[in-house]
Design a protein around this nucleic acid. Structure first.
Lengths: 209, 209
DNA sequence: AAATAAAATGAATGTTCATTCATTTTATTT
DNA sequence: AAATAAAATGAATGAACATTCATTTTATTT
């Protein structure tokens, strides 16, 4: 765990205080933009450096290598986003509203940071990557949050008992991700967050009569 | 449309008869495997050639360039798969069964050809690519098929009228894709097709009581 | 204000790989 | 069985690019 908060310089480990350095964040944000525009593998370190306004070599003072930038993006952003997910889930008092808040916030986050959405959606669907384990951990966080809501909803009778919870979790996340993906492909021409209520309606009531 | 059925040799266009050549298909299948194992951008033409048992240069007798291989994979495979989707949808007599058949077949196809599933899921989530338009066309085929089922179901009272169809289509496809994705990440250790019925249940009845 | 340390630079390096094409092999025609 | 055409080969080419590191710039300490 701690390894994520350590970076290297000339083979010497330097501490987390550098995390406060704005150059680290400048590079992170620049990378999100460049990765979103060109995809991870077509992005060059020089492009990132130019976008961040630093020299190519400077990148390697803050990141082990190109892939480490992606790892750091996921770590940093996911941590932040999940804190906000937690907040809105906890602020609702019944499971239906918890689910609605979660999904609304989920859409909000990605509408707010379109580049992150592009990177996130593209990279979470890659198999056989060094990232894979990290992605699993992050998915699990989301799934656990949904599971918590679902179980609570089953107990207090909002949701029916005969549910294959493992499947319901995938069903919800997949549905939301696809809605985000379509929005991205449409160049964000409409309000993504407005999809939240109709989506929750589908989750809860289905399409049947 | 026709452009997809033409390939080049030394700058001279040769006809579709070469499509019957087994080398074309050998290269296609080899590419699916290599792309699945390493991802498109990390795959080298030499790897594909080795896997297909041909020389590097031979690839360029059948494909314009590396990306063209990916385009051809999508064209060829998608056409085939959609024919079978059409079949199973038409063979059912009511909308609920049509939907169930579609989803079951969808899962079947990808369970049968795991490598294709890997390539398909990874590449459909890429934005800003030459592929993008082609992917839109393919998604549209799927969406149109689902729309047809949904509208029919609304007319004969199986599905409720107050549905945002555009959203329902994304909801269904996204859910199915995520289920496939999870199965892939789990190394295909369980039967994917068995998810079909529980999924359809979720689509139709939702999770509410 | 020297001296030392830390941070940043960007040109140079070495590797990787898509693509080409001169040559060889195989198939078809005369 | 020549002659011609088509298909296939794989070594060579050259461009792209991640990473390194000798040097310079900036900050801190004595």
């Amino acid at each position: 765990m701690f390894i994520h908060f350590i970076c290297f310089r000339g083979g010497i480990v330097i501490g987390a205080r550098d995390r406060n350095n704005d150059k680290y964040h400048r590079i992170l944000e620049a990378s999100v933009k460049v990765f979103a525009d060109h995809g991870f593998h077509q992005s060059t370190v020089s492009q990132i450096a130019r976008e961040a306004g630093v020299a190519d070599g400077t990148i390697y003072l803050y990141f082990k290598n190109k892939e480490d930038i992606l790892v750091q993006i996921f770590n940093y952003k996911t941590t932040q986003i999940f804190e906000r997910f937690r907040e809105v889930v906890d602020s609702a008092e019944n499971p239906v509203e918890k689910l609605r808040n979660l999904i609304r916030r989920h859409l909000q986050e990605f509408q707010q940071d379109r580049n992150l959405a592009v990177v996130y959606l593209a990279e979470t669907r890659q198999i056989n990557r060094v990232m894979e384990d990290q992605i699993k951990v992050m998915s699990k966080m989301y799934f656990d949050l949904v599971a918590e809501i679902l179980e609570q909803g089953q107990q207090d009778g909002h949701f029916r008992k005969a549910l294959y919870l493992g499947l319901v979790k995938r069903h919800i996340l997949g549905s939301v991700d696809e809605v985000i993906s379509t929005w991205l492909h449409a160049d964000g021409e409409y309000d993504l967050v407005s999809m939240a209520d109709p989506l929750v309606d589908l989750f809860i009531n289905g399409i049947g009569t």
